[in-house]
Design a protein around this nucleic acid. Structure first.
Lengths: 161, 161
DNA sequence: ATTCAATCATTAACATATTAGCCAGTCAAC
DNA sequence: GTTGACTGGCTAATATGTTAATGATTGAAT
């Protein structure tokens, strides 16, 4: 009874391919004492000047509960400032500090250098295709995809066999 | 001073695209009381009959320290058995249980159904291209890619500005 | 002015990711 | 038979992912 499914695990392939790329950047990022998520946020703030936590979540693909902790630690490290908006006490403005501005200006060019190296190694066409295919996947609407009907829920965790 | 880097954040695009796919499978997996990682392991064991933790780590892209906890919880739930190899007490054999065999045989077809739906929504060519591009990225050798030289390390976390 | 739904950030609880280090078991060289 | 390098699984410590719920704040409807 071959249990082999008809489709290879696509999300897992994404995971593997992503790791394949990231392993070339991780050493650079950790060299500066940052985590990958912290660098995503620094890079976003470097490009957008100022953002609200909610906007950073969307842009960097980090969930809100994680964001709270990440920003707290970054504030502690002196990498960002958090200021409540006077006109709406729920919202917050996040900015880079002089220190992190400096950090980004040093780290950014190194990342770009690494991209160039990877582009040569992978072949420029592959990189181009990558961006293109990714965009097409992301562009595919989430909504209109129908959902399969699920069988009645069993409590597998407590089922005895 | 526009800080915009020359390259879009490619690992982040992978993250987004992966999430775009996974959000169609996650409801199915959680419906059965599983996490995504647990399903990856169950699927692998369903196809390979028996595996050692080290092999599962490679196949499912889960690091060894995480694997310890995941397998412990799965053993606790009665989803896998762990047996030490007599001839080499360091190694362990992991297998499905009758319960999880049953689970996989129920869950697997639902996953396949969802793939078919996604394939129709995305277009079969896109899926095909996806698999192809992913494989090319993964095939790109990790070794021969040269590393940029890093500047002397500063302790950014404690630098005062 | 009060009520009510919606919004934003946060907390709580648990699972996993990541890095470093540990420890027992194996195996080959001495 | 010891030593020493190596392997495989594990622990520890910290950071993040994930889901659900809380709490304060706002704005619109009453």
């Amino acid at each position: 009874m071959s249990r082999k499914l008809a489709y290879r695990n696509l999300p897992q392939l994404f995971l593997k391919a992503r790791e394949e790329l990231l392993c070339h950047f991780r050493p650079i990022i950790t060299h500066f004492g940052l985590t990958e998520q912290q660098w995503r946020i620094l890079r976003a703030l470097g490009e957008m000047e100022q953002l609200e936590p909610r906007e950073i979540c969307e842009h960097c693909h980090i969930l809100s509960p994680s964001m709270t902790g990440v920003l707290s630690r970054m504030e502690e490290m002196g990498l960002v400032t958090r200021v409540r908006m006077p006109e709406d006490q729920r919202r917050v403005i996040v900015r880079l500090t002089p220190k992190s501005e400096q950090l980004v200006s040093e780290l950014g060019p190194l990342i770009v250098e690494q991209y160039k190296i990877i582009e040569q190694a992978f072949g420029p066409e592959l990189i181009k295709e990558l961006y293109e295919v990714m965009d097409r996947v992301i562009a595919a609407e989430r909504g209109p995809i129908s959902r399969i009907e699920l069988p009645p829920k069993k409590d597998w965790a407590n089922l005895k066999f």
